[in-house]
């Protein structure tokens, strides 16, 4: 490709720095407005501020990226995920918030797809949207409470929470912006040299998984196309014991959940 694209590897070349303070504070102000409180929320102002902040942040962050299909898809999925997250945090009705979480999961699944992880996309949707959220909805229905109530219509220190969240985000993005160009190993990978995988004599599975490692057109290493097969080989090869332990953990958690949820007085605990 052209020499121009390598410009971004120079330090500080990502176009965000302290500028992100603006959209972040606008967005957090919007979230603050939207958080439920007894005297009522201003949905219109808050929503406007939040969307404005998000848009500003996207514009700043994606400033140097050309408009391509991938960029559009990234904007779409990340926008869906972030909007879902904002809804999850601010909706007073917990059932709706749980549905907003499925939106987040779908958005993140889309990002997984962009990141060459189709298996994880499916797993994420099945486990979260399919299992966890549904279970949560059951419990919500079980513990149905009418709005307004203390749990859903009040927030604990919304201003402090938004301030903490905003400063954390600001600092993370600053760190990212300053360091992104200097990610040394990333740069090495981009330049196609010094791949640990080719250097270290590890299990053959790993080598098989990464012998396919190749750079795509923009110089980024590409993952093998058979994502599921290689992921399985990786899991059951290098991480076999961890897989077994995860199975044990699941069993223990199941038993524990049964023991904890048992109504006291109705028989012995397990």
């Amino acid at each position: 490709m052209t020499a121009g694209m390598f410009a971004i590897t120079e330090a500080g070349a990502y176009p965000w720095s302290w500028w992100v303070l603006g959209p972040i504070s606008v967005g957090m102000l919007g979230i603050y407005q939207l958080l439920p409180r007894p005297e009522g929320t201003s949905v219109r102002t808050g929503g406007f501020l939040a969307v404005f902040g998000l848009a500003g942040l996207m514009a700043l962050v994606l400033g140097g990226v050309l408009l391509s299909v991938e960029t559009v898809l990234f904007c779409l999925f990340s926008g869906v995920a972030v909007c879902g997250a904002a809804l999850l945090v601010t909706l007073a009705n917990p059932a709706r918030a749980a549905l907003a979480f499925t939106v987040v999961v779908l958005g993140v699944a889309g990002l997984f797809l962009l990141l060459a992880a189709p298996f994880l996309m499916g797993a994420n949707i099945i486990v979260y949207a399919g299992a966890i959220v549904v279970t949560f909805l059951f419990v919500l229905m079980l513990a149905q409470q009418h709005l307004p109530n203390d749990a859903d219509s009040r927030s604990r220190e919304p201003f402090l929470a938004c301030l903490a969240g905003g400063s954390a985000l600001l600092l993370i993005l600053l760190a990212l912006g300053e360091d992104a160009g200097k990610l040394e190993s990333y740069q090495e990978v981009r330049e196609g040299r010094a791949l640990e995988a080719t250097r270290s004599p590890v299990a053959p599975v790993r080598r098989a998984a990464e012998s396919d490692l190749r750079l795509d057109m923009s110089g980024v290493p590409a993952l093998p196309a058979d994502n599921t097969a290689f992921l399985g080989a990786n899991l059951y090869g290098r991480h076999l014991i961890a897989v077994e332990l995860a199975g044990v953990l699941l069993v223990v958690a199941t038993l524990g959940a049964i023991a904890v949820a048992q109504r006291s007085g109705t028989g012995e605990a397990l």
Partner: peptide, 14 residues
């Protein structure tokens, strides 16, 4: 806890 996280982040960046 979140404030502690922020302090650590600030030490690393600002």
């Amino acid at each position: 806890m979140a404030l502690g996280l922020i302090v650590i982040l600030a030490m690393f960046t600002v």
